[in-house]
Amino acid sequence: MDKAMPEISRFFGIIIAMYYNDHAPPHFHVRYGNQKAVIDISTLGIIEGELSPRALGLVTEWAALHRVELKNDWELARRHAPLNQIAPLE
């Protein structure tokens, strides 16, 4: 991941990031091993890609707990401002 896609959280080998200047709807990117997916912040559904059921369950649980923070980071990314780290799932 690079500065264009800052990592905002990491847990159980799952990496969560957001691109600056990304397209709507508000979403975040997930990488887990060779798996990649784009998750809609509002619905928590997969927009693109694919995750194993276990990884998707963990990501969905985490995102549901941090939806407000994800929306805030989305707005920061739109303004090219530094993104806030979000606590990992424990």
Rank of each mutant, 00 (worst) to 15 (best):
T60K: 13
P82D: 10
Q35A: 15
Q85H: 13
G57P: 05
I16Y: 00
E7F: 04
E61F: 11
G45S: 12
G57K: 14
W74E: 06
L83Y: 03
W62M: 04
L56G: 06
G13Y: 06
H27W: 05
V38R: 14
T43V: 04
I46D: 06
V30S: 00
A17N: 05
R54C: 10
Y32T: 08
I15A: 06
L65I: 00
T43I: 05
L76D: 08
M1H: 01
L83E: 05
D73G: 08
L89N: 09
M18S: 04
L76N: 08
D40M: 07
I41F: 08
E50T: 13
A24Q: 11
A64R: 15
N84M: 07
E61S: 10
R79E: 15
A77Q: 01
E90G: 11
H80A: 14
N21T: 05
E75S: 14
Y20K: 07
R78D: 04
A55S: 14
H29D: 10
K36P: 03
P6K: 03
R10P: 07
D22S: 12
K71P: 00
D73M: 08
F12R: 11
D22I: 01
H27K: 07
M18P: 03
I41V: 12
Q35Y: 12
S52I: 09
E90K: 11
Q35L: 11
Y19C: 09
M18L: 04
M1R: 03
R10S: 06
A87C: 00
P26I: 10
E50F: 07
E75H: 10
S52N: 09
E61V: 10
A63Q: 02
L89V: 05
G33Q: 15
P26F: 12
Q85V: 01
I41L: 02
L58D: 01
P53I: 07
A63T: 02
L65Y: 02
P26V: 11
G49S: 15
K36F: 14
I46E: 09
I15V: 14
V68M: 01
L44H: 15
Q35T: 11
T60D: 07
L83A: 05
Y19S: 09
H27T: 00
N21G: 11
G45Y: 06
R79M: 13
E7L: 09
M1V: 01
L70Q: 02
S9R: 00
Y19P: 00
P53H: 09
H80W: 08
R67Y: 09
Y19W: 14
R67H: 06
L56V: 02
Y19R: 12
N72E: 15
S9G: 03
L56E: 13
M5L: 07
V59G: 03
F11G: 03
I39K: 07
F28G: 04
F28K: 05
Q35N: 10
K3Q: 11
D2E: 14
P25V: 06
I14S: 00
L44F: 13
F11R: 08
R67G: 04
V38F: 10
H27M: 03
F11D: 05
M5R: 15
M5D: 11
T43E: 13
F28N: 04
A77C: 06
R10V: 06
A87V: 05
W62E: 06
A37F: 05
